[in-house]
């Protein structure tokens, strides 16, 4: 089997692994194994992409208007009452709190954007083709992300690097302080709230960095 033949069948075997002949080519050919490694690396990195941006508030305003017009919500004493969004967010946090530690962990990871659980649950079985799966733990991934974010800022707007670095340090200090407090008293719900907010702040920093399209 030559490279052209291998690459012809690659779309079909990259997820599931190939037959012995294809595997043999892959083992013996640096070009094809590098290609497979790159493609797999792209797919793996894509799994870690984060839902980072919230929609503008006008989206909810539009939905609310339509709900009222369509009569999908039950009127209370003549007028529809929507609770302020803060309360909705708070109660959202409360029910996370009431849930398992897993849910809390998921939310925290979500906050810095690592959809870690998803990787381990719904993904295709590990393919037989050489795989380069990032084995880093979420915490290490976060350090890595920090470095990448600063790199990105340096590339796009060098003048702002110092600001971003300084604020990254202060938000990480916030996270550390909240964590330390939770270790001291796991039942301190106020400290849990601070931790979630600290992650929200960190997400903001990342979003702002991303928004610098520069050029």
């Amino acid at each position: 089997m030559n490279c052209a033949e291998f690459q012809e069948v690659l779309p079909d075997i990259i997820e599931s692994g190939g037959n012995p002949e294809e595997e043999a080519h892959l083992k013996s050919c640096a070009v094809c194994s590098d290609l497979v490694q790159d493609l797999r690396y792209i797919a793996d990195t894509a799994k870690l992409l984060l839902p980072m941006r919230d929609p503008s508030p006008r989206v909810w305003t539009g939905i609310r208007g339509a709900l009222q017009r369509e009569g999908l919500v039950r009127p209370l004493a003549g007028t529809v009452r929507f609770r302020p969004q803060a309360a909705a967010v708070l109660s959202q946090r409360r029910w996370v709190r009431g849930g398992s530690m897993l849910a809390v962990a998921a939310l925290l990871l979500f906050a810095i954007g690592i959809i870690w659980l998803r990787n381990n649950s719904t993904r295709q079985p590990q393919p037989a083709v050489t795989a380069r799966v990032p084995a880093a733990a979420p915490a290490a991934a976060a350090d890595d992300d920090d470095a990448q974010m600063l790199n990105f800022v340096q590339h796009k707007s060098p003048a702002l690097l110092a600001t971003y670095r300084e604020n990254l340090e202060s938000v990480n200090a916030y996270i550390r302080d909240a964590r330390r407090r939770i270790e001291q008293d796991p039942n301190d719900m106020g400290a849990h709230d601070h931790l979630i907010r600290a992650y929200d702040e960190k997400a903001l920093l990342y979003e702002m960095a991303m928004a610098r399209s520069g050029e």
Binding site: P57, R83, P84, Q85, A86, A87, E166, N167, S170, V171, Y174, R197, A198, D200, E201, L204, L205
Partner: peptide
């Protein structure tokens, strides 16, 4: 107002601000 302010290091000042929801988050 439905006010939502998030800043890392910015000082936040609110004068005569009211509404069903006002939230301010800062780090430093």
């Amino acid at each position: 107002g439905h006010v939502e302010i998030t800043s890392l290091n910015g000082d936040v000042r609110l004068d005569a601000v009211s509404g069903p929801r006002v939230s301010v988050n800062t780090v430093k």
